[in-house]
Design a protein around this nucleic acid. Sequence first.
DNA 1: CCAGCTATGTTGACATATCATCAAAGCAAG
DNA 2: CTTGCTTTGATGATATGTCAACATAGCTGG
Lengths: 156, 156
Amino acid sequence: MAARWLDEDEARLWRAYRVLSGELQRAMERQLERDAGLSGADYAVLAPLSEAEGGVLRMRELGRAVGWDRSRLSHQVRRMQNRGLVAREECAEDARGFMVRLTDSGREAVEGAAPEHVETVRRYSFDLLSDRERATLTRVFERLGARLAQDAKEHL
Amino acid sequence: MAARWLDEDEARLWRAYRVLSGELQRAMERQLERDAGLSGADYAVLAPLSEAEGGVLRMRELGRAVGWDRSRLSHQVRRMQNRGLVAREECAEDARGFMVRLTDSGREAVEGAAPEHVETVRRYSFDLLSDRERATLTRVFERLGARLAQDAKEHL
DNA sequence: CCAGCTATGTTGACATATCATCAAAGCAAG
DNA sequence: CTTGCTTTGATGATATGTCAACATAGCTGG
């Protein structure tokens, strides 16, 4: 492994990225917790449910939507069920499956949280980007994401 | 709160960012674990130590370098001490403080991990970026980071 | 049909992160 | 000097994430 080290500019970008990525995530989670009493994980689960037909998704689909493994999702949903944010029902078509349904309280929570959440996204990203920059970021993020997805597919 | 919702392009960018950010972090952690038996948190602590004068830093400085709160760092360093990656010494100038020192085994671990780590960074970022894109990303990430830092300062 | 193989989801043990609290040392104003 | 505020760090309880079994249902080829 020839050590192609990072030059000064590269190190600066990589550092800026890591700091931004961490701080942004923390800022978003603080905002959700403060304004709606939801963790980032809660919101990640509630958002796809609120957009789904009837507020119901199968565990499998929900897992795809949030991008987690089965175990993490199972634990998270159980905790959210205990707090009354979601309910679980058996799956008609496939006896292995379980459906997750948004409760009234859960819907109230997401819908209350969403506007402030979106405002915060804007405040820390779109409000600070030109149109050109926005286009560049989209292109770059999707390109990098594609390589990660490709590697993930190959390696397992 | 007027709901300035995200339009299609904005939603696409935000989603691409979240997916990338998560996948990239997981990919980097998998690589470190596989090639060097280190977690991302381990590496985050070891890297600044390996660059510090004599491989020693005060807890406070180390905390600044990694950007964690005191509690998290304290727990992490204790675990790393148990595994022999770092050692702790009292602080001469300030009796409250503690110094964290890289052990031989710790230095071996970082230095073994670093080349593969850097290669992985390249593979998932710099190898896929043009010079123009790199410059744009640096500018944008630092601008966004600055607003986050400013808000953090005001809000506490 | 049924023998394996895959897909779905749960569980318990463990690792890690966060939160509130505590303690001790430094420091600054009087 | 000493009283009170700040800084630094550790700790224990709790929340969350990860990992390795496990269980059950569906699917597929003989």
